[in-house]
Design a protein around this nucleic acid. Structure first.
Lengths: 132, 132, 132, 132
DNA sequence: GTGGTCTAGACCACA
DNA sequence: GTGGTCTAGACCACA
């Protein structure tokens, strides 16, 4: 799974990489313990400067999503229950609030919105159930 | 309702203003047609550079959230069904995908997550029902 | 207070900067809320590449030692009681263990070592009492 | 006593080995003159590249902690009073300064900190009194 | 003026 | 081969 970079997005490249790797892990496309491409390899593959890749990897490591083993490479980490969960919980609340605001401008009522979210969740968990 | 700005946040100030005004409108704290404070007034009130306020207002106008009438001031727009709805729909999908990714790292299952979103929506629509 | 960099130290430059700023804050040479030199200014002053300074500042911000305010600059943060304290506690234990190991090779007994640490602490807190 | 290596640590493996051997000696778990495992044996035991073990042993020999006798093996050295003591003294000061900085961020006062260090020292010297 | 991002390219420690 | 550090230099968003 190679990240697809949109160089004219207003989201910085290193954050696009972070987001897509987190997504790939969440979807089960990258299994815990699996090796990620090396900084140089990924840099070559998607034609992005290695420093930018390294920055993304370092941030992912700081978040506990991946682990670096000296001289060996970078690997998807096991799911760490616990630390920082409250912050993630709050981040879900923050995102949901944005959804509720958008829903207002779309003139979506409570039921309609929830139906939408349900079907999106359904689709997501189905795919996830298949891949691993 | 005066926006509360956190100058330390990594979110640019002008975006904090945009977000909070959109929220206030969505919550019904600002009614369609209601007058917003002028750029200068708001700038003075929250001690922010007027250029920054102006930038936020320009962006809000571009999104059709507010309208400026020359010589009269700035007003909350009526809800415009239509233009840009697909984009908003896509933005809901984008936000929901982020929620699904976070849910994975929180190790939330489908039911748990949906229960969380339900209760957040419930609370939101209740408050909204009261204010206007 | 300008950091003094030893380019041939095995400690990376950005970490030397981090350490010296933490020390300056701990000694009271930099007060909470006080402005630090800008990235460019410090880079020019100590003849180090701005990117390296920026890396040090970013790490200090991540640790909550300093705060960046967009477009304004970088400031010493107020002491945050709390988060991460356990980790710091553990880091004191780790450092103390290293001291105890060194003491063994110096053939220092318990009393001698503690006397040394006492006098070092005494001197430190005296200086600190004067500066602010 | 076999070193426990954490390949994920940001401390290089060879330094983890150095540190743990110094600790074992300081705690009396390895007596002066006692034979250490050979490079190959240790490498096999803890599943680490022999070059890495060799590097650790070389550094330990340079510091006078261990001695290699050709054809016989590697042994814990007798305590050498003298050479390098000033450097070790300075290293204690360096470590103590780091502790004082951490104490500041923990908002520990002089007495509290010293009490902590006392009790850590007490525990250490007790264990040490038992083992040899 | 401020920090943030990105590139190109070099060098290094580690395993 | 792997990631980490550092430089020089460019460009950008923000306030």
């Amino acid at each position: 799974m190679w990240p697809r970079i949109d160089p004219r997005s207003d989201l910085p490249i290193y954050q696009q990489i972070i987001q897509q790797i987190k997504e790939a892990v969440a979807k089960g496309l990258i299994a815990p313990g699996e090796k990620l491409p090396s900084v140089r390899e990924l840099a070559g593959r998607i034609a992005i400067n290695p420093n930018t890749i390294a920055k993304a990897y370092q941030e992912l490591e700081r978040e506990g999503i991946i682990e670096t083993i000296r001289g060996r490479g970078t690997f998807a980490a096991a799911l760490s229950s616990g630390v920082g969960d409250e912050m993630k919980q709050r981040s879900i609340e923050g995102l949901m609030e944005k959804i509720l605001v958008e829903a207002h401008y779309l003139q979506l009522g409570e039921e309609e919105l929830l139906a939408m979210l349900h079907s999106m969740a359904r689709e997501w968990y189905e795919k996830k159930g298949e891949s691993p």
